[in-house]
Measured scan of single mutants.
Amino acid sequence: VTVDIKGMEYHFDNPEEAKKFAERMAKELGGELKVENGTLKVE
């Protein structure tokens, strides 16, 4: 699973970990979490 945090890509084997990480980063950065082509994106 790929997580894109404002252009920086992180790769996770575990989808649950990827989702938790993306949600935490969205909250910390005040960004919006989206799913695009199987990639979790925070913008």
Rank of each mutant, 00 (worst) to 15 (best):
E9L: 15
L33V: 15
L33Y: 08
K34I: 13
G38R: 01
G7D: 03
K34E: 04
L33C: 10
F21Y: 05
E36R: 03
F12P: 00
V35I: 13
E43F: 14
E16W: 11
Y10H: 04
F12A: 00
G30P: 03
N14L: 05
D13Y: 06
A26R: 05
V1Y: 14
V42F: 05
D13S: 12
M8N: 10
E43Y: 15
K27A: 13
G30D: 09
E23P: 00
K6E: 13
G7N: 03
V42L: 11
K27R: 10
K20G: 06
E36F: 11
G7Y: 03
P15A: 13
V3K: 00
E36W: 08
G7K: 01
L40E: 03
H11A: 05
T2I: 14
A22N: 00
K34Q: 07
K34T: 11
A18M: 01
A18D: 00
V1T: 12
V35L: 12
K20D: 12
G31D: 04
I5R: 00
E23Q: 07
G30K: 10
E36L: 12
A22G: 04
K6Q: 14
K6H: 15
V35G: 06
E23T: 04
E28Y: 09
V42K: 02
A22E: 04
K20Q: 12
F21I: 01
G31F: 11
D13F: 07
G31R: 02
M8K: 14
E17Y: 04
K41W: 09
K19M: 15
E36P: 03
F12Y: 02
D13T: 12
R24T: 13
I5Y: 08
G7R: 01
V42Q: 03
A26M: 07
V3T: 01
L29Y: 08
K34L: 11
K19G: 04
E23W: 03
M25Q: 06
F12H: 01
L29I: 08
E28N: 05
K27S: 11
K41T: 10
A22S: 02
R24W: 14
D13I: 10
H11R: 10
G31E: 06
K27F: 13
M25W: 12
A22T: 02
F21N: 01
K41L: 09
E32A: 12
M25K: 07
D13R: 09
E32Y: 15
A18Y: 02
K41I: 13
N14A: 04
P15N: 08
N37D: 09
G30V: 05
R24K: 13
A26Q: 07
L29Q: 06
E17C: 12
G30H: 10
K6N: 15
T39R: 10
A26P: 01
Y10Q: 02
A26G: 04
R24V: 10
N37G: 11
K41N: 04
G30E: 09
F12S: 00
K19Y: 15
F21P: 00
A18F: 02
G31S: 07
K41V: 12
V3I: 05
T39A: 09
K6W: 14
K27H: 12
N14Q: 05
A26Y: 05
D13H: 09
Y10S: 01
F12E: 00
K20C: 10
E16L: 09
K19S: 07
P15Q: 11
F12D: 00
L40N: 03
P15S: 09
I5E: 01
E32M: 13
L40V: 06
K6F: 15
E43C: 13
A18K: 00
K6V: 11
A26H: 06
E23V: 06
I5V: 11
N14M: 03
A22W: 06
E43N: 10
N14K: 05
K6P: 02
I5S: 01
G38S: 06
T39S: 10
E36C: 11
A26K: 04
T39W: 08
E36S: 09
K27G: 09
K6T: 08
N37S: 07
A26V: 09
G30T: 04
V3P: 01
T2Q: 05
L29V: 05
Y10D: 00
G30M: 09
E16P: 00
E32D: 10
V35E: 12
K6R: 12
K41Y: 11
E9D: 04
I5G: 01
V35Y: 14
G31V: 11
L33N: 03
E36A: 10
K20A: 14
M25Y: 08
N14S: 13
M8I: 14
F12W: 01
F21C: 05
K6A: 14
V3Q: 01
N37T: 05
A18C: 02
V42I: 12
T2Y: 07
T2G: 02
T39M: 13
M25I: 10
M8A: 08
K34S: 10
G7A: 01
A18Q: 00
G7I: 02
A22M: 06
K19E: 08
E28I: 10
N14R: 05
N37H: 10
D13W: 09
E43D: 11
E32G: 06
E32H: 14
V3L: 04
E36M: 10
F21G: 00
E36I: 13
V42W: 06
E16K: 06
L33T: 05
T2M: 09
N37A: 08
A18N: 00
L33H: 03
E16H: 10
E9A: 12
E9I: 15
N14T: 12
L29S: 06
K34N: 07
V3M: 02
D4G: 07
T2A: 04
I5C: 10
E28G: 02
F21H: 01
A22R: 02
P15L: 14
Y10W: 08
L29F: 08
V3A: 02
H11V: 11
V1R: 03
G31Q: 07
G31P: 03
D13E: 11
E32L: 13
E9H: 14
N37F: 08
E17G: 02
I5W: 08
K6G: 15
M25F: 05
I5P: 00
K6S: 14
G30R: 08
I5L: 06
G7M: 01
V3F: 02
K6I: 11
D4I: 15
E23Y: 04
M8C: 13
E43T: 13
A26E: 08
